[in-house]
Amino acid sequence: MKRTIPLIITSVTALVLILSQATMLGRKLEIPKILDRYYLLAQAGAFMLGSIGRTRLHLQNIIRRREGYAYSIVLLVALWGFFILGLFQTSNGRVYQWVFNATLPHLESTTFAVIAFYIASAAYRAFRMRNIDSSILLITGALVILGSVPIGEAMWKALPSIKTWIMNVPNSAVQRGLQICIRVGSFAVALRVLLALERAHVGRGSD
Protein backbone atom coordinates (compact mmCIF):
# COMPACT_ATOMS: atom_id res chain seq x y z
CA MET A 1 0.00 0.00 0.00
CA LYS A 2 2.80 2.43 0.82
CA ARG A 3 4.00 2.11 -2.79
CA THR A 4 0.61 1.83 -4.51
CA ILE A 5 -0.80 5.13 -3.20
CA PRO A 6 2.19 7.27 -4.34
CA LEU A 7 2.07 5.55 -7.74
CA ILE A 8 -1.65 6.34 -8.12
CA ILE A 9 -1.10 9.97 -7.04
CA THR A 10 1.78 10.29 -9.57
CA SER A 11 -0.25 8.79 -12.44
CA VAL A 12 -3.35 10.89 -11.78
CA THR A 13 -1.34 14.12 -11.35
CA ALA A 14 0.61 13.48 -14.57
CA LEU A 15 -2.57 12.77 -16.53
CA VAL A 16 -4.29 15.89 -15.17
CA LEU A 17 -1.25 18.03 -16.07
CA ILE A 18 -1.10 16.68 -19.64
CA LEU A 19 -4.82 17.34 -20.16
CA SER A 20 -4.65 20.77 -18.54
CA GLN A 21 -1.86 21.74 -20.94
CA ALA A 22 -3.47 20.32 -24.09
CA THR A 23 -7.20 21.05 -23.69
CA MET A 24 -9.19 24.28 -23.63
CA LEU A 25 -10.94 23.32 -20.38
CA GLY A 26 -7.62 22.52 -18.71
CA ARG A 27 -6.18 25.91 -19.66
CA LYS A 28 -9.32 27.61 -18.32
CA LEU A 29 -9.12 25.85 -14.93
CA GLU A 30 -5.41 26.78 -14.51
CA ILE A 31 -4.64 23.56 -12.62
CA PRO A 32 -0.82 23.80 -13.04
CA LYS A 33 -0.91 27.12 -11.13
CA ILE A 34 -2.70 25.47 -8.20
CA LEU A 35 -0.33 22.48 -8.22
CA ASP A 36 2.68 24.81 -8.37
CA ARG A 37 1.67 26.19 -4.97
CA TYR A 38 1.80 22.69 -3.45
CA TYR A 39 5.15 22.09 -5.15
CA LEU A 40 6.48 25.31 -3.60
CA LEU A 41 5.27 24.20 -0.16
CA ALA A 42 6.91 20.79 -0.57
CA GLN A 43 10.14 22.51 -1.64
CA ALA A 44 10.12 24.79 1.40
CA GLY A 45 9.56 21.82 3.72
CA ALA A 46 12.28 19.78 2.06
CA PHE A 47 14.68 22.74 2.20
CA MET A 48 14.18 22.95 5.96
CA LEU A 49 14.67 19.19 6.31
CA GLY A 50 17.88 19.41 4.28
CA SER A 51 19.16 22.28 6.44
CA ILE A 52 18.37 20.36 9.63
CA GLY A 53 20.18 17.29 8.26
CA ARG A 54 23.24 19.38 7.42
CA THR A 55 23.17 21.02 10.86
CA ARG A 56 23.02 17.65 12.61
CA LEU A 57 25.98 16.34 10.61
CA HIS A 58 28.14 19.42 11.18
CA LEU A 59 27.25 19.62 14.87
CA GLN A 60 28.55 16.06 15.20
CA ASN A 61 31.76 17.14 13.42
CA ILE A 62 32.21 19.96 15.92
CA ILE A 63 31.32 17.96 19.03
CA ARG A 64 33.62 15.06 18.07
CA ARG A 65 36.37 17.44 16.91
CA ARG A 66 36.64 15.67 13.55
CA GLU A 67 39.29 16.80 11.07
CA GLY A 68 38.34 20.16 9.55
CA TYR A 69 35.65 20.87 12.15
CA ALA A 70 36.45 24.59 11.91
CA TYR A 71 34.83 24.57 8.44
CA SER A 72 31.70 23.10 10.03
CA ILE A 73 31.57 26.11 12.40
CA VAL A 74 31.84 28.50 9.43
CA LEU A 75 29.07 26.61 7.61
CA LEU A 76 26.69 26.65 10.57
CA VAL A 77 27.31 30.33 11.30
CA ALA A 78 26.70 31.22 7.62
CA LEU A 79 23.62 28.99 7.27
CA TRP A 80 21.77 29.95 10.44
CA GLY A 81 23.18 33.50 10.73
CA PHE A 82 21.81 34.33 7.30
CA PHE A 83 18.51 32.64 8.12
CA ILE A 84 18.09 34.62 11.38
CA LEU A 85 19.09 37.86 9.61
CA GLY A 86 16.41 37.16 7.00
CA LEU A 87 13.78 36.65 9.71
CA PHE A 88 14.48 40.13 11.11
CA GLN A 89 15.17 42.05 7.92
CA THR A 90 13.35 40.09 5.13
CA SER A 91 15.20 39.58 1.86
CA ASN A 92 15.07 43.32 1.08
CA GLY A 93 16.92 44.38 4.25
CA ARG A 94 20.06 46.53 3.84
CA VAL A 95 22.43 44.32 5.84
CA TYR A 96 20.90 41.15 4.38
CA GLN A 97 21.41 42.47 0.84
CA TRP A 98 24.94 43.63 1.62
CA VAL A 99 26.01 40.28 3.10
CA PHE A 100 24.53 38.46 0.09
CA ASN A 101 26.01 40.76 -2.56
CA ALA A 102 29.42 40.89 -0.89
CA THR A 103 29.81 37.11 -0.66
CA LEU A 104 27.82 34.69 -2.80
CA PRO A 105 28.08 36.26 -6.30
CA HIS A 106 31.86 36.64 -5.91
CA LEU A 107 32.34 33.11 -4.64
CA GLU A 108 30.19 31.73 -7.45
CA SER A 109 31.97 33.78 -10.13
CA THR A 110 35.33 32.57 -8.83
CA THR A 111 34.27 28.93 -8.98
CA PHE A 112 32.83 29.43 -12.46
CA ALA A 113 36.09 31.05 -13.62
CA VAL A 114 38.09 28.01 -12.47
CA ILE A 115 36.46 26.07 -15.32
CA ALA A 116 38.80 27.81 -17.80
CA PHE A 117 41.77 25.93 -16.27
CA TYR A 118 39.83 22.67 -16.20
CA ILE A 119 38.97 23.10 -19.90
CA ALA A 120 42.68 23.47 -20.67
CA SER A 121 43.64 20.27 -18.85
CA ALA A 122 40.66 18.31 -20.26
CA ALA A 123 41.44 19.57 -23.79
CA TYR A 124 45.05 18.47 -23.41
CA ARG A 125 43.86 14.94 -22.61
CA ALA A 126 41.15 14.85 -25.28
CA PHE A 127 43.21 16.36 -28.12
CA ARG A 128 46.01 13.79 -28.12
CA MET A 129 46.43 11.78 -31.34
CA ARG A 130 45.97 8.19 -30.15
CA ASN A 131 43.78 6.76 -32.88
CA ILE A 132 41.78 7.85 -35.92
CA ASP A 133 38.82 9.10 -33.82
CA SER A 134 40.96 11.34 -31.61
CA SER A 135 42.89 12.57 -34.66
CA ILE A 136 39.64 13.65 -36.35
CA LEU A 137 38.62 15.35 -33.07
CA LEU A 138 41.97 17.15 -32.88
CA ILE A 139 41.85 18.38 -36.49
CA THR A 140 38.20 19.49 -36.25
CA GLY A 141 38.82 21.18 -32.88
CA ALA A 142 41.88 23.01 -34.24
CA LEU A 143 39.95 24.22 -37.30
CA VAL A 144 37.03 25.49 -35.16
CA ILE A 145 39.33 27.21 -32.64
CA LEU A 146 41.44 28.87 -35.34
CA GLY A 147 38.34 29.81 -37.35
CA SER A 148 36.89 31.59 -34.33
CA VAL A 149 39.85 33.92 -33.62
CA PRO A 150 41.28 36.78 -35.75
CA ILE A 151 44.72 35.15 -36.00
CA GLY A 152 43.11 32.19 -37.82
CA GLU A 153 41.73 34.48 -40.53
CA ALA A 154 45.12 36.19 -40.79
CA MET A 155 46.74 32.77 -41.36
CA TRP A 156 44.23 31.53 -43.92
CA LYS A 157 41.23 33.50 -45.17
CA ALA A 158 39.09 30.35 -45.66
CA LEU A 159 39.32 29.28 -41.99
CA PRO A 160 36.23 31.21 -40.72
CA SER A 161 34.11 29.75 -43.56
CA ILE A 162 35.34 26.22 -42.76
CA LYS A 163 34.51 26.77 -39.08
CA THR A 164 31.02 28.05 -39.99
CA TRP A 165 30.43 25.01 -42.24
CA ILE A 166 31.57 22.57 -39.51
CA MET A 167 29.28 24.23 -36.95
CA ASN A 168 26.25 24.61 -39.23
CA VAL A 169 26.31 21.33 -41.16
CA PRO A 170 27.84 18.25 -39.44
CA ASN A 171 27.61 19.67 -35.90
CA SER A 172 23.99 20.82 -36.31
CA ALA A 173 22.96 17.52 -37.93
CA VAL A 174 24.38 15.46 -35.04
CA GLN A 175 22.97 17.81 -32.40
CA ARG A 176 19.48 17.74 -33.94
CA GLY A 177 19.54 13.96 -34.24
CA LEU A 178 20.52 13.70 -30.57
CA GLN A 179 17.92 16.27 -29.55
CA ILE A 180 15.07 14.40 -31.28
CA CYS A 181 16.11 11.10 -29.67
CA ILE A 182 16.44 12.78 -26.24
CA ARG A 183 13.00 14.40 -26.46
CA VAL A 184 11.32 11.12 -27.46
CA GLY A 185 13.27 9.39 -24.67
CA SER A 186 12.16 11.95 -22.09
CA PHE A 187 8.52 11.50 -23.20
CA ALA A 188 8.99 7.76 -22.76
CA VAL A 189 10.42 8.24 -19.24
CA ALA A 190 7.47 10.47 -18.34
CA LEU A 191 5.01 7.90 -19.69
CA ARG A 192 6.78 5.07 -17.83
CA VAL A 193 6.24 7.02 -14.60
CA LEU A 194 2.63 7.83 -15.57
CA LEU A 195 1.88 4.17 -16.31
CA ALA A 196 3.66 3.14 -13.06
CA LEU A 197 6.12 0.96 -15.00
CA GLU A 198 9.05 2.94 -13.57
CA ARG A 199 9.01 2.65 -9.81
CA ALA A 200 12.59 3.02 -8.58
CA HIS A 201 11.62 6.26 -6.80
CA VAL A 202 9.21 4.38 -4.53
CA GLY A 203 11.44 1.30 -4.14
CA ARG A 204 11.12 -2.03 -5.88
CA GLY A 205 10.92 -4.18 -2.76
CA SER A 206 7.79 -5.81 -1.43
CA ASP A 207 5.20 -3.73 0.44
Binding site: I18, Q21, A22, T23, M24, G26, F187
Partner: peptide, 13 residues
Protein backbone atom coordinates in the same frame (compact mmCIF):
# COMPACT_ATOMS: atom_id res chain seq x y z
CA UNK B 1 -11.39 20.39 -27.25
CA UNK B 2 -7.67 21.04 -27.89
CA UNK B 3 -5.83 24.30 -27.24
CA UNK B 4 -4.30 25.65 -30.49
CA UNK B 5 -0.71 24.49 -30.95
CA UNK B 6 -1.01 21.54 -28.56
CA UNK B 7 -2.80 18.99 -30.80
CA UNK B 8 0.28 17.50 -32.48
CA UNK B 9 2.12 17.21 -29.12
CA UNK B 10 -0.86 15.54 -27.48
CA UNK B 11 -1.23 12.97 -30.26
CA UNK B 12 2.53 12.32 -30.21
CA UNK B 13 2.34 11.53 -26.48
Amino acid sequence: IFYPGETAGFFLI
